[in-house]
Design a protein around this nucleic acid. Structure first.
Lengths: 346, 346
DNA sequence: TTGTAAGCGTTATCAC
DNA sequence: GTGATAACGCTTACAA
């Protein structure tokens, strides 16, 4: 006779089970289950008896058992490259707001911009039987792709518009955004437009931004100059350094497009230290509409990307697939809009 | 005869089970379980056969079933007041880094600074049978406290040092931090020290900061002046507004301690717009060492709080309790150190 | 509308 | 060292 002999002893947390509620209410466990999940399928007096028993006992349903039995879970896995990057938090919040309304829980992990790490996390999430995945990255190991296909879990990618989507996509196009800003600078008359990006992230998002920049230069009839492209690390200091380096190698530079993080603010501060007028000596443009850019002087021209909306929309599409079985959404790509916000710096 | 008649049909994701692996390897399911969880308890040749079968089939263990059966889970629930607040992301990362090493997953939710919302989230996490909880808030509804006690789940609170801890605590003291900074300003000779805080968060953290400020004024022999206390909303604009308001009501103000978010930077910008010299006309101090404060001019004096360490330490203590059953940690309070970082603004 | 029994995929227990 | 079996707490399927 395996397991505990005495069913009341040794139970962790002394948590009551459905059958305890059932006994207390003088009904079957099945009626308790129905009362809690489909109250309409139970007579009013039954419902009340059950709910009273639940309260008296302090019963908390066991989601593990419920998910196992029903073969459906209420958790969604989210993998971001970095947890402590303000860029992602808006998207996380959008996603969180949507799924919590449907009683879903978010599992979050960070991949550190590493596809192998991402694969491990995907595997871990699948063993937890998440009912959906949200991936910021659009590059994955073959094994990761295979596992996702096999698990038949709906997925949303939302950091870029990939050439070969895994499933659903909700994102802006990094290429198009960088293209738009570069064109903006070109139309303003800038001729030597530098481009700063983060060397820490050699992924398709960075590459697409660079491609968009080059594409715009071509359309503007400007000659690309490798010396105008600088790769830096993250943060304000890196932005300052980008200015220093590009001005050193190409003194005639007249605009700097910072395609990452808070680089633009760092660049602006450096110009201020040098006593340079922005945009007269050099124009500055940024890639994300963080609050700070509106409050520095001069205010900084940037791209507004609907990061919250991306999270919200991702959640909605995922839930439609999971709850409503909206198979028509399979493979759909939502290319969200973005705006160039012109301010004083360019 | 309930359930599916044909066990192979209708299975979501066509996911293989342990018994499929067992059949393939020509062993029992129990041996597969042992091979995966306690490889040392299985003969080498068995182990290899099992691992091969796992690979061939592409088997992914089912954590729901495992947790249900073993009555232990590998998820930890984290509740922060706000997901899109950079203050918390460092702590989240510290926690995430630690628990991922032990194969635990993080469930994250946001309470919106609302204890009732927090109670709902705690309940949800408990139904998911998380094996530990990390709460930023130190104020909870009586029901939330009762549920946690009943569930016997280890908890770490880490936003403040509460008078009555729920269980473990890893935090700095908001009172002591605000006291230290106010004393710092007082020792520098400032006599009319204003205090700005966020009106959106009427919680013990805000109250303790204010108490620390008052305590320091008393020790400095300075007369408290209600007009020197301003409550504002969040963000740079709010910081600017704080300056405007306090200067209007108390023109002789000579220092402003911004005890929240990026208020100090907003305040600094406002001073710059007014052409005021900081700290000569007015000194400015902040509450958190965000990167920006080191890069503005003048650089801003602030408090360095070990936010990453708090997350890391919280995770370690939680895991010790969960994995090693370290009961001696129950109720332990870790009052982490902080520093006043003196810079140019005060 | 309510109840009964089997089963979800794993692990604890005991027997070999 | 390995296997058979019951059990984890719940829901599906069907019967009453």
């Amino acid at each position: 006779m395996p397991r505990q002999k005495s069913p009341k002893n040794g139970r962790v947390g002394s948590s009551a089970r459905m059958r305890d509620v059932a006994k207390r209410a003088g009904v079957s466990a099945m009626t308790v289950s129905r009362a809690l999940k489909e109250p309409s399928k139970v007579s009013p007096e039954m419902l009340e008896r059950v709910l009273n028993a639940v309260k008296e006992i302090g019963y908390l349903p066991n989601h593990l058992a419920s998910s196992l039995s029903s073969n459906r879970s209420t958790t969604i896995g989210l993998i971001v490259p970095s947890i402590d990057n303000s860029i992602y938090t808006q998207t996380v919040k959008g996603l969180s707001d949507v799924i919590k309304r449907s009683g879903f829980q978010l599992m979050i992990a960070e991949s550190g911009y590493d596809t192998n790490e991402e694969e491990e996390l995907i595997t871990a999430f699948l063993t937890h039987r998440v009912s959906g995945l949200v991936l910021h990255s659009t590059e994955h190991t073959p094994q990761a792709i295979q596992k996702i296909k096999k698990a038949e879990v709906p997925v949303v990618e939302n950091g870029n518009i990939p050439a070969q989507p895994l499933d659903m996509v909700v994102s802006y196009s990094n290429h198009d955004a960088a293209y738009a800003m570069t064109m903006h600078l070109g139309r303003l008359g800038y001729k030597n437009i530098a481009f700063a990006s983060l060397h820490s992230t050699h992924n398709d998002r960075s590459r697409d931004r660079l491609a968009g920049y080059h594409h715009a230069l071509r359309d503007l009839g400007l000659e690309p100059n490798p010396k105008l492209i600088v790769e830096t690390s993250r943060g304000l200091a890196a932005g300052a350094e980008a200015v220093t380096r590009v001005v050193h190698s190409v003194p005639e530079v007249d605009a700097l497009f910072c395609a990452g993080d808070v680089l633009a603010v760092g660049a602006l501060f450096e110009c201020q230290r040098r006593g340079w007028s922005v945009p007269d000596r050099i124009a500055i443009a940024s890639f994300d509409d963080v609050d700070l850019l509106r409050h520095v002087s001069p205010t900084v021209t940037t791209l507004r990307l609907p990061r919250y909306d991306i999270g919200e929309r991702s959640g909605q599409m995922l839930l439609s697939r999971i709850i409503d079985g909206a198979e028509h959404l399979r493979g759909s790509v939502v290319d969200v809009k973005f705006e160039v916000i012109q301010r004083e710096s360019a």
